Simulated assay, not measured.
Amino acid sequence: MAMSSGSDSMINTLRDTIVSMVRRDGPDLSARQLAVFLTCYLQDDAHTVRGLAAELNVSKPAITRALDRLQDLDLAWRTRDPMDGRSVLIRRTLKGKAYLRDLSAIVNEATAPREEEAAAPVRKVRGRRMEERLRRAG
């Protein structure tokens, strides 16, 4: 299956991001945990276990397990909804906000053009100019 260069670039950025997350000190999250974390931190809505399960199309127990890990890492907290005691709200934490900043920095670094990739078009132009000069000098 052939991938376009845009797809290649995106998948390589994803790989670079994940590798950086795994190599750094601190927790690395599973895909499900990361999906729950990012949903809670990037969307301003109040989040509930039920709502996250519906939005991510996974079971409530799967969300609960992901939240258990996030809570163990102090990246999110669960509290009872004061308006509806049956509902559990997900709260952001200071450590979670710092983790999001770190993750953003890792993604930005992974998406920054590599020096050799950025220099490649310049080398091509210089090469063409040299060829043109040689042709003229002939």
Rank of each mutant, 00 (worst) to 15 (best):
E55H: 14
N57H: 15
D8L: 15
A2H: 09
V36K: 00
L56T: 04
R135D: 09
D102L: 08
A66P: 05
D84S: 05
T48H: 02
S4A: 10
V58H: 03
R129S: 11
V107I: 15
A2R: 10
D44C: 09
D72V: 07
G26T: 01
L70Q: 00
D74G: 01
A105W: 05
E55M: 12
K95A: 13
R86Q: 04
I11T: 12
L75E: 03
G26V: 06
R123N: 04
A46P: 07
M3F: 10
R136P: 05
P121A: 00
T39K: 07
K60G: 02
D44T: 12
L34D: 09
G26Y: 02
R23D: 11
R92E: 11
N12Y: 06
T93E: 03
V19N: 02
M130W: 12
Q71M: 08
D102C: 06
V19W: 03
A62I: 05
P113T: 05
R15C: 12
D81S: 08
R126E: 05
E55W: 09
M10L: 15
L38R: 03
E55G: 14
R126Q: 10
L34M: 15
R128H: 15
L52M: 08
T17Y: 04
M3E: 10
P61E: 05
R123I: 08
S9N: 14
D102Y: 04
T64A: 10
I63E: 01
L67W: 04
G85L: 11
N57W: 10
R24P: 06
L34N: 13
E55I: 11
I106W: 04
V19K: 02
M21E: 15
R78D: 06
A118Y: 04
P113F: 00
D28Q: 12
I11V: 10
R24I: 10
M21H: 10
A2G: 07
L14I: 14
G85D: 14
K124N: 14
S5D: 14
R136D: 11
L42E: 11
P27M: 07
T39F: 06
V107N: 00
T17M: 03
A118N: 05
T111W: 05
L56Q: 01
Y99I: 07
R86E: 01
Y41A: 03
V49H: 02
R78N: 08
T111F: 07
